[in-house]
């Protein structure tokens, strides 16, 4: 549905987005990951035609941006609020109408969503009388009420309590089932891991890794090994294929190099200590994230991906 190619955006002194490319299809949830200030929001604003790119192309179903597309986009900005002094239903209807929705239809849909989010009784209240969580529900409603094809959610889960997080996640999965293309940005890796089909990690404006979640894990993740034993485990730090080791009294966490041979490590341990548990752990996105962004040693991988 959306194809982004070689996107570039310069601000006064920095290049906020540098040669970013990705694709999103219908019925797909795309996670845009990266630390704060990585350029996620800038990229999103360009996709939404709020900002103009300095280079690169974006096509929507093969066509460039046009005014008519505005009615097919839903957007939840990162730092968000609503008109504090305005009434709940009025606000929803206004934001639906400027997306080209007819008022009567907008009202029906608004009431349906308010009922679903258990806010029906608040419809004539002013926004400022609502709790923060409830305000976020309203903002979510306004970003999807007009049945958009492309839904863009910037940090949708930040500040949400666990109950509302589940509520939002359910709604997202429904949108996916309905064939929408969904972009969401986050710096919470567990969210991205649970929800997204494909993802893209950007840092300092550049794509550092991207692809399907499985693909990313396979290519960039370093496996880690959890061992429980009896005896002196200090030798484990110097085993071939072990990049980093945390040795405790009766257990050890070992970070393995991508080319580490598990069998050899196990063989090396046998006889030296008495092994009670030997478990190979799947890499989490969290660890990949820290590996590629947080630790300077990951610099080689960073270049390899870009």
């Amino acid at each position: 549905m959306l194809a982004v190619r070689n996107l570039r955006k310069d601000f006064a002194t920095i290049r906020a987005v540098d040669d970013v490319s990705f694709d999103i299809g219908r019925g797909e949830i795309f996670g845009l990951l990266g630390p704060n200030g990585a350029g996620k929001t800038t990229a999103i604003r360009i996709v939404l035609n709020i900002l103009e790119a300095d280079g690169g192309t974006i096509t929507y179903d093969g066509r460039p941006f046009s005014g008519a597309l505005r009615n097919q986009i839903g957007y939840l900005p990162e730092e968000r609020g609503l008109y504090r002094k305005s009434k709940l239903l009025d606000t929803i209807l206004y934001l639906a109408e400027i997306r080209g929705m007819k008022r009567a239809k907008a009202r029906d849909e608004a009431l349906r969503w308010l009922r679903r989010f258990d806010l029906l009784t608040y419809q004539e209240r002013k926004v400022e009388e609502l709790s923060k969580g409830n305000q976020q529900k309203i903002q979510f409603i306004t970003s999807i009420i007009h049945d958009p094809v492309l839904v863009v959610l910037d940090e949708p889960f930040s500040g949400l309590d666990p109950v509302n997080q589940i509520l939002f996640q359910e709604a997202l999965r429904e949108l996916k089932q309905a064939g929408k293309a969904i972009i969401f940005s986050t710096h919470q890796m567990d969210q991205a891991e649970k929800l997204s089909d494909t993802l893209c990690l950007i840092n300092k404006g550049k794509v550092v890794l991207g692809g399907t979640v499985r693909d990313v894990k396979r290519r960039y993740g370093s496996n880690s090994l959890h061992v429980e034993f009896q005896g002196d485990g200090s030798f484990m730090t110097s085993l071939a294929g072990v990049r980093r080791a945390m040795i405790y009294e009766n257990a050890a966490e070992l970070d393995l190099a991508p080319d580490a041979r598990i069998q050899d490590i196990l063989k090396a341990m046998i006889g030296k200590v008495e092994i009670r548990k030997f478990e190979l752990l799947e890499p989490s996105l969290q660890s990949i994230f820290i590996e590629t962004v947080g630790i300077p040693a990951g610099g080689t991988m960073l270049q390899g991906a870009a």
């Binding site: 505005r70 900005p77 968000r80 934001l95 400027i98």
Partner: peptide
């Protein structure tokens, strides 16, 4: 409150 971003992506 960043509603302006929603507005300029709508109109």
């Amino acid at each position: 409150n960043r509603i302006v971003e929603v507005l300029v992506s709508s109109v």
